[in-house]
């Protein structure tokens, strides 16, 4: 007997929720990025678990989707960190409410 699919989806949902909570509750740009990564990992678990359940050509597709997600997440993290550090040079802070030259 293997682990039912629903447990994987449940795990993904938990990671998704924690990621969202990190994003909305921790006011720090780097934390926001960490929350994003948690959500992405949740999505990846879904992709793999569903792909396995669907069978056919999907195991490969799920794998490939997840690989792309990992690669793009790395790229996005690189860009985001470059920008965040750049902003830090201007504003001396990594809290999102601090850069506030642009008016309300």
């Amino acid at each position: 007997m293997t682990v039912p699919l629903v447990w994987y989806v449940f795990l993904a949902l938990i990671l998704f929720t924690i990621g969202l909570v990190v994003i909305v509750s921790r006011h720090n740009l780097i934390y926001t990025l960490m929350g994003v990564e948690l959500i992405l990992n949740g999505a990846n678990i879904n992709f793999i678990a569903f792909a396995r359940a669907l069978g056919g050509k999907y195991p490969i597709a799920g794998n490939i989707f997840s690989i792309f997600v990992i690669v793009l997440a790395a790229a996005e993290a690189a860009v985001a960190l470059a920008i965040v550090l750049h902003v830090f040079g201007h504003f001396g802070s990594v809290r999102p409410e601090d850069p506030n030259m642009l008016r309300e």
């Binding site: 994003i23 990025l33 996005e76 985001a80 750049h86 902003v87 201007h90 999102p96 030259m101 642009l102």
Partner: peptide, 19 residues
């Protein structure tokens, strides 16, 4: 600095949205 601020807002919100 305004350009930098624009970029950081865009990347943060954008990252969350795409996730």
């Amino acid at each position: 600095p305004r350009s930098a601020e624009a970029a950081v807002k865009y990347v943060i919100y954008g990252g969350v949205a795409s996730a």
